[in-house]
């Protein structure tokens, strides 16, 4: 009944999950990404947070930072939400659903970073927030252009040969995902090292990288 038109890109679909007219699909590619997101979501749930060791500048003294239970609970909640949003984005068969999950990933990423009570980290979180907000414009704009020019948002129809998706829509989609998953922007800010990293900050990286991998598949297939 279903037959993915682009079997030569991510492999033929192994299994489809229907929600009305939204049909999620697991091809070898999306299934691998899904499993990876699942592994790291589980790790975010079961791992204890690391206790960051800091060395006092100019001396021999060092100490481990303690993590309060409240902070850990909130960050864990956000990391799990982020993992779930990533899982959704990995197998979505609908461009609008994908953009929705991507923006959810953006929101939860800000949540993970902003939980930490440190002036520098909060500053960084504020700037990520601005980038993520700006990125929603090209993200949903890309989806809107796709809908306006082709009349559908279902990947099953967009991937077919006859449908021409404007290149600007593809560019917008990639731009939006790069802003939402803030990996390219968060590396430039060293403030992130002041917060304890594993496993919650790692989730920021996991989600943004996986979103990027998925949007590449979508853009090449269209």
């Amino acid at each position: 009944m279903f037959n993915l038109p682009t079997g030569n890109i991510g492999g033929q679909e192994l299994f489809v999950l229907e929600f009305g007219d939204i049909v999620n699909y697991f091809s070898p590619y999306t299934a691998a990404l899904f499993v990876f997101a699942l592994i790291f979501t589980v790790l975010a749930i079961v791992s204890r947070p690391e206790r960051q060791v800091d060395i006092a500048f100019g001396g021999d003294a060092y100490g481990a930072k303690e993590v309060s239970i409240d902070l850990m609970r909130f960050q864990r909640f956000m990391a799990i939400a982020c993992g779930l949003a990533t899982l959704g984005a990995m197998v979505s068969g609908d461009v609008f659903n994908f953009t929705l999950f991507a923006s959810l990933v953006g929101i939860t990423n800000i949540g993970i970073v902003a939980a930490y009570r440190n002036r520098h980290v909060l500053n960084a979180a504020f700037q990520y927030g601005i980038v993520a907000m700006l990125a929603t414009v090209p993200l949903f704009g890309g989806a809107a252009i796709i809908l306006a020019s082709t009349g559908t948002l279902s990947m099953w129809e967009l991937f077919a040969d006859g449908v021409a998706v404007p290149i600007i829509a593809k560019a917008f989609l990639v731009l939006g995902v790069m802003g939402e998953g803030m990996a390219p922007f968060y590396v430039a800010k060293a403030e992130i090292t002041r917060a304890q990293g594993a496993p919650f900050i790692l989730m920021v990286h996991v989600s943004s990288l996986l979103l990027f991998l998925r949007v590449i598949e979508i853009v090449i297939s269209m």
């Binding site: 206790r51 060791v53 990286h205």
Partner: peptide, 14 residues
């Protein structure tokens, strides 16, 4: 890349 990143972050060492 995530493995490399996770490997470094998970230990607590600067």
């Amino acid at each position: 890349k995530i493995v490399e990143h996770g490997m470094g972050l998970s230990s607590g060492s600067p």
